[in-house]
Design a protein around this nucleic acid. Structure first.
Lengths: 222, 222
DNA sequence: TAATATTTTTCACAGAAAATTCACTGGGCT
DNA sequence: AGCCCAGTGAATTTTCTGTGAAAAATATTA
């Protein structure tokens, strides 16, 4: 387990490092966002603990920057009351957050949760899925409805692929917008609905797989 | 089992201590909130018994203070009729309460309940819960009653999930409104009742898990 | 480059579903 | 017995989704 601790406070870094190493993990430190980005370019970490307020480059900007070239789980460390930051942190794709003051125990619990999640999602991804008469070729970007090729637009492909990758998981519109459209999309919720409508139309009878979860969003379920 | 008893009355402390030690537990005492906070800084307790009315620093303020740096289960000891205090105590995160005059037996029961809960919540949050024939899939948003899928409305899901996340914790209507409906909800208390009714109806025989606490609210208990 | 085609997004509206209110009933507790 | 308080059913109000059409953005072609 390799963890990157990003915080400008020496003390916090030291405490976290101690806990991580006590559990047999490996810890590296960065004093600010700039250094964090640099280290991430060179090394792969299992999880990054990222403070929000830092000199030079703040936590959010750093995560944004890192996300451009690498996908690694991030846990944000935000001072209490930074509500706005908290939300924003999620939007840019951090996996969790802890508010200061935090107990090291709490942080370790988050780390374990994130690692476990990562391990779970490392399940072999199939290239071709078949749900009854619906065949989806993830690599070739082809979808067949009862053997006949369905002409989907790019967004429809992406949406369908995301649904399939998260089969059985309840997805909010917000999450779909974040994951399929990207964190920097600031558009209407209805956009999702419209694309779901189009996708359903193209899936013909297999529209049934996309279930509406009233008050929440959608779910792909066979 | 390490317990901190916080009360300004010598007699009460002595009685509680006796019971705790009789059951093989370890007890420490504090005469007021100030002392309690100080002791909590130095030592980790499994549970804190905290009186409300005390000189120097009252119980609520003390809990608030302690919460700032440590997370420990608290059972409030409030004089009967201190209704307001009771509610407030829940909001600041005490785990249970006992009204004076109480039987030591009652207090011990609460302690055991709290300890059991703490042991249970130490494990990572589950995705799927099973209580007898009631299966709740938090991720997929599915609820099965004896294997059959229950169709819940959004509020019913949220309410059930909140109940489950707070298994064994007494929840006031106010707290439910705040947490499930949102802090900006200014509605009737009866609203909770109605949704509990609907939820119970959908849970069929497992309605029994949602216990009515007369004069207070509800509790999810298996 | 301009014109055209395709895709994406916005938006308003209708119908459906759900939430809320509220008066009344009945049970538990003193 | 009387007083609260929770349970309940139904009416009312609010919210939500599906949809179609138009506008905007993007890609393609001449």
């Amino acid at each position: 387990m390799k963890v990157l601790i990003v915080d400008d406070e020496e003390m916090i870094r030291a405490v976290l490092r101690e806990y991580i190493e006590f559990e047999g993990g490996e810890a590296e430190e960065a004093q600010d966002g700039m250094e964090a980005v640099k280290k991430c370019r060179e090394t792969d970490y299992d999880v990054i603990l990222m403070d929000v307020m830092m000199p030079r480059l703040d936590g959010f900007s750093a995560v944004k920057e890192i996300r451009k070239f690498k996908q690694m789980p991030v846990i944000m460390l935000s001072a209490r009351g930074e509500e706005y930051d908290k939300l924003f942190g999620f939007e840019i794709g951090s996996d969790d957050y802890v508010t200061k003051p935090f107990s090291p125990k709490e942080v370790m619990a988050r780390i374990h949760a994130v690692m476990k999640r990562a391990a779970a999602s490392a399940k072999p991804v199939k290239d071709v899925y078949e749900f009854e008469g619906l065949k989806v070729d993830m690599v070739g970007r082809n979808v067949y409805v009862d053997g006949e090729r369905a002409e989907l637009t790019p967004k429809e492909y992406e949406l369908l692929f995301y649904f399939i990758e998260n089969e059985g998981v309840a997805l909010t519109r917000e999450r779909l917008l974040n994951q399929v459209w990207g964190y920097d999309f600031y558009g209407d919720d209805r956009t999702v609905d419209t694309h779901v409508k189009m996708l359903r139309g193209n899936l013909k009878e297999y529209r049934k797989f996309i279930v509406t979860l009233r008050g929440l969003g959608y779910k792909f379920e066979t």
